[in-house]
Simulated assay, not measured.
Amino acid sequence: MNNISKIITWKRNILASALVLLTLAVLSFYGVYTNQFYFLKADNYIFPLLTSVHFIYMYVIWFKISEDELPDPKMRNIEYILYVIMIVYLFKIYDSAVVLNSINVFDEHVIPATFKPIATLSLVLYSILPILTLYTFWLRKRYIGIYNFENYNDNLNIWQ
Results as ranks from 00 to 15, higher is better:
residue 14 I to Y: 05
residue 5 S to Q: 13
residue 160 Q to A: 06
residue 5 S to H: 11
residue 2 N to W: 07
residue 92 K to A: 06
residue 92 K to L: 13
residue 127 S to M: 11
residue 34 T to F: 02
residue 23 T to H: 01
residue 95 D to H: 14
residue 79 E to A: 15
residue 64 K to M: 13
residue 91 F to P: 01
residue 109 H to A: 13
residue 11 K to A: 09
residue 89 Y to L: 13
residue 127 S to W: 01
residue 95 D to G: 07
residue 54 H to I: 00
residue 114 T to C: 03
residue 58 M to V: 03
residue 15 L to V: 04
residue 101 N to E: 09
residue 157 N to D: 15
residue 112 P to E: 04
residue 20 V to R: 01
residue 78 I to M: 10
residue 42 A to R: 08
residue 116 K to R: 12
residue 9 T to S: 11
residue 78 I to S: 03
residue 62 W to G: 08
residue 157 N to A: 11
residue 43 D to Y: 12
residue 91 F to Y: 15
residue 15 L to Q: 01
residue 1 M to Q: 12
residue 3 N to Y: 01
residue 24 L to F: 01
residue 135 Y to L: 01
residue 63 F to I: 11
residue 159 W to P: 04
residue 65 I to E: 06
residue 8 I to C: 02
residue 29 F to G: 07
residue 105 V to C: 05
residue 13 N to E: 15
residue 149 F to C: 12
residue 61 I to E: 00
residue 37 F to E: 06
residue 63 F to H: 15
residue 112 P to G: 02
residue 143 Y to W: 05
residue 131 I to H: 07
residue 36 Q to G: 09
residue 143 Y to L: 05
residue 146 I to L: 11
residue 1 M to Y: 12
residue 158 I to R: 07
residue 41 K to T: 06
residue 6 K to C: 06
residue 89 Y to A: 15
residue 75 M to S: 13
residue 1 M to A: 12
residue 98 V to C: 08
residue 29 F to Y: 11
residue 1 M to W: 09
residue 5 S to C: 10
residue 64 K to N: 13
residue 110 V to C: 00
residue 140 R to H: 06
residue 152 Y to G: 08
residue 15 L to K: 08
residue 8 I to Q: 02
residue 123 L to G: 03
residue 156 L to E: 12
residue 64 K to Q: 11
residue 28 S to Q: 06
residue 46 I to F: 10
residue 22 L to W: 05
residue 40 L to G: 08
residue 53 V to N: 14
residue 146 I to H: 10
residue 159 W to F: 14
residue 59 Y to R: 04
residue 18 A to E: 07
